[in-house]
Write a protein that binds this DNA or RNA. Structure first.
Lengths: 213, 213
DNA sequence: ACGTTTATCTAACTATCATTCGGTAGAATG
DNA sequence: CATTCTACCGAATGATAGTTAGATAAACGT
């Protein structure tokens, strides 16, 4: 065995935390792997490799593999939410429901496809997680769903929604269409903005020209 | 250890196969588990338990865990396709594009949510599978996508599609919205038919009453 | 200068995984 | 009745998983 120690570089006085860098690196690497392979399929050794450290060293920063996941799940949802809220805030005060929903879709999509290692990992893995791992982010998810529900019911109140549209199902369909982009989106197919506008347009007006036929 | 042998009941002359029952039971149990937990998270012991046999006995019917999966993936896609085709065939010859797309959505959804252990397992696990496992069903998936593309471009030719609608993205959005139902659909929320009509309506006409605003 | 803290490595531990294999009860076959 | 085949069991195997623990080198406070 050749001795090949990595340099240990503890905290620089009153500056930024030292190990936080490694910690973030671990999280980011893990998020990527979780998104591509799923939670169980990803090993701590893969995560450690991607972060440039040894498997055992991960436990200096996290208590368990589960803890890495739950942190990713939580910040994943927070990131989408922040992205959506910032898009909505950028809208003028007299924005139409149509504009608001379009902005919501664009925000969700940007959070998902651009910043999105944490977000896409969160969305992709959640469904197949054991109950005790789902529990941690359940509340955040409910809140986010409620947020969209209010966006839609506001649109319904201010008129303009087609009759017979089930708001609850509409929300699930919108988020479904948007979430599914993690399965197919590829920058080669066009910018996130373009895809976002297409989806918003489809959701708002559908594929057909008139409402008959 | 108490001796508790299961009865062995080999083939009845020229009748139905004997072990086929067990084989099917294994596949069905595995599909359910794959859908809920993912491929890697599901152990052969869980599959064997659900099928009422011992883990080692699975290898009498399948060469490997991979083989179970690929068979599930393949029949999963075949089932959706069959379901979609049968819905479309039930349509009158002079059906409108709108009716055809609605029928396609309904077919896909029925295949997904009713027969659907194989189908939903296929859709849910595929994205996070290692490349060599994806390969087996890649062709089937491409064919199915092409099927929807032709459905949409046919609608475009016969007129009636809104200008500016990207057919490729439209297909991905439609299938995304529909596929995502496996994450949320619950019979308590209403029949598959009702959900199907809602989705078809949203895709066809969108949520808004008019195309302005 | 000296002991402490920080961040890591290396090596081990236990559990569990997919898979293999010899054995076997009972039906089928001759 | 003897043999073969079928469909399974039960125990073992080797690989790998998450996790733990002791050692260590660099940077720190005093």
């Amino acid at each position: 065995m050749t001795i090949a120690k990595r340099k240990a570089r503890p905290g620089i006085k009153g500056s930024e935390a030292p190990a936080e860098l490694t910690r973030d690196h671990i999280l980011k690497s893990a998020a990527k792997l979780f998104r591509d392979q799923g939670y169980v399929a990803t090993t701590l050794r893969q995560i450690a490799d991607a972060a440039g450290i040894q498997a055992g060293s991960v436990y200096y920063h996290f208590r368990s593999k589960d803890e890495i996941l739950t942190e990713i799940l939580d910040t994943g949802i927070d990131e989408v939410r922040k992205s959506v809220v910032s898009r909505l805030d950028a809208l003028p005060a007299d924005a139409t429901p149509r504009q608001k929903i379009a902005a919501g879709i664009e925000g969700h999509l940007l959070g998902l496809l651009q910043h999105g290692d944490f977000t896409s990992a969160s969305i992709r893995t959640y469904g197949q997680l054991p109950a005790h791992l789902k529990r941690s982010s359940q509340l955040r998810r409910k809140d986010y769903s409620a947020f969209w529900d209010s966006l839609l019911s506001e649109a319904a109140e201010h008129g303009g929604l087609r009759t017979g549209v089930d708001l609850h199902i509409a929300r699930l369909v919108i988020l479904g269409a948007v979430n599914w982009t993690v399965e197919w989106y590829d920058p080669k197919q066009g910018s996130v903005q373009k895809v976002s506008r297409q989806i918003a347009s489809l959701i708002s007006d559908g594929v057909f020209l008139t409402h008959e036929g």
